[in-house]
Amino acid sequence: MRGSTNRNTRRVRGVLGAAIVVCAVTTALPGAASADPAGVARTAGAEVGTGVGVERVSVAPDGTQSDGGSTGGAITTDGRRIVFSSSATNIAPGNAAGSERVYLRDEPSGQLKSVGSYPIASPVISGDGEYAAYWVLLFRDTKVKLAQWTAGSSIGLNCDALNCSQPSLSGDGRYVANVATIGRPSTSQRIDVWDWHANTKQELAWFDHTAPSRPSISGDGRFVAYQNGRTKDVFLWDRDHGSTSGPIEGAAKEATLVQISEDGSKLVYLSGTDTYVHDVSTGTAHLVPNVKGLAIDPTGNHLLYAPNDTAGPSLKLRDLTAGTDEIVSNQPASAGVDAVSAGGRDVVFQSTADDIVPGDTNGKSDVFVRRFS
């Protein structure tokens, strides 16, 4: 094993920070611009989030396009809610300065809530859609925020360090995996899991560097996958056994973690120009050659990827059981983790292309959802 990691589970060493209440703005979206896979517009005013096709979700309260760029995009297990960030001034009231904000959108009802401000990176979402997590810069330090759909409140996690970043949420939002970097300037880091219901923390690993660790937690909080960014090794922590296994990819291969599926059955990593889908129970890996894996659906059966061949579609969805592909976007587009709902039914992505849906003239990056069923 090339990397070093602490295989002993450390117990409680901290408590959560105080909850900070923020304003949650709820608006109705009467008809987002949408199109079917062939580019034919759906009927205006139809129920949001139904049918097959592609729909722009980063829209203003009156259903028109936003006046600012929108990025990111993560979707719940059932495809009902989507989180993204945007600098638009007309998505929610009071954003006249055009600052970056975090938005949660409920597709069936068309409700949109502003749940946070100034995210550094794309927000993530819990499997049930009740919570979103993101990290922000506070003076010289970074902190993880946990925002709730129902209460409209934001909890700041006290990670016992100057900087917290790279959050990942369990299915119900109870467990938060994140990175805590130590010192100023930061010279080392650890991987933590917070159970904020019980106000407890477990420390999974320490590294003597600050290369990205990218933790990814399973839906029940049992597994956390993470990487040693310096040695390019991927590890898997198991709460039930209090142990860590790895490197998952083998001692002779470098790897970059993508994520673990919500059900904890599959772990996706990149190595060279290929993507591997590691089966947690058997220890075997499924090779998907010459592609960059971006996300896996909650059941571990559908892989969202970007082909290394840039001449064709920019995003595809592979059914790993059937070995078949669906085109997500023919236009240049990108996506992050948690971008696929269960069974590969929905995929969230971002693009600056102006011909994905009719009437896209804002010249900005927008967030879209492609529905296959």
Rank of each mutant, 00 (worst) to 15 (best):
E47K: 14
A33E: 11
A41M: 03
V328G: 01
P108T: 03
G300P: 15
W194K: 07
A41K: 14
C159H: 09
S265Y: 00
V115A: 10
R230A: 07
S4Y: 08
G14A: 12
S351A: 11
L169P: 06
S165I: 01
T256V: 14
F139L: 13
L204F: 05
G246D: 04
D172N: 05
N308F: 00
T210G: 02
P93G: 02
C159Q: 05
Y131I: 07
A35E: 07
R214E: 12
A44P: 01
R140E: 15
T324S: 12
T43E: 13
S114T: 10
A33F: 15
W135Q: 09
T27S: 07
G68Y: 04
L138C: 08
S218V: 08
V54F: 07
G283C: 09
A38D: 05
L304D: 00
W149T: 00
D128H: 14
W206L: 11
D240I: 03
F139E: 13
V340P: 02
H241V: 04
P30T: 03
N228F: 02
N330V: 13
G171K: 00
G293Y: 03
R345H: 15
A32G: 10
T50F: 01
R81V: 05
R81Y: 08
N308H: 01
R13D: 02
D192P: 15
I155E: 07
G359S: 10
Q111R: 13
G359L: 06
V57Q: 14
G31E: 09
V136S: 07
V57M: 06
T187E: 15
S218H: 03
E130F: 00
D297A: 03
A147F: 09
G53A: 04
R81K: 14
D279S: 14
G283V: 04
G49D: 02
I191W: 00
G359C: 02
V347D: 05
S341W: 15
D354E: 12
G250D: 02
Y305C: 07
P215T: 04
K145W: 15
A255V: 13
D238C: 01
V193S: 13
K143R: 15
S70N: 07
V12Q: 01
V54M: 11
N163G: 04
T142I: 03
G156Q: 14
Y305L: 04
L304N: 01
Q148H: 14
G173H: 11
T275C: 09
G293S: 05
A180E: 07
D309L: 10
A161L: 05
G94L: 04
G152K: 08
S154E: 14
L146M: 08
V340C: 06
V367W: 09
P332N: 09
A132Y: 08
N178L: 13
N308R: 04
S170F: 07
S154G: 12
A335R: 10
W237M: 01
I296Y: 01
E254S: 13
G363Y: 12
D366K: 05
G63R: 00
G283K: 00
T210D: 05
A41L: 15
V288S: 08
D238A: 00
V21C: 05
S126C: 10
T142P: 06
A306G: 02
D238E: 08
V176Y: 00
T5G: 13
R10N: 06
E249D: 07
Q189A: 01
N308A: 05
T5K: 03
G323D: 12
T299H: 12
C159G: 13
P167W: 00
P108G: 07
L104S: 02
P119L: 07
D208M: 06
T5E: 13
A33R: 06
F84E: 06
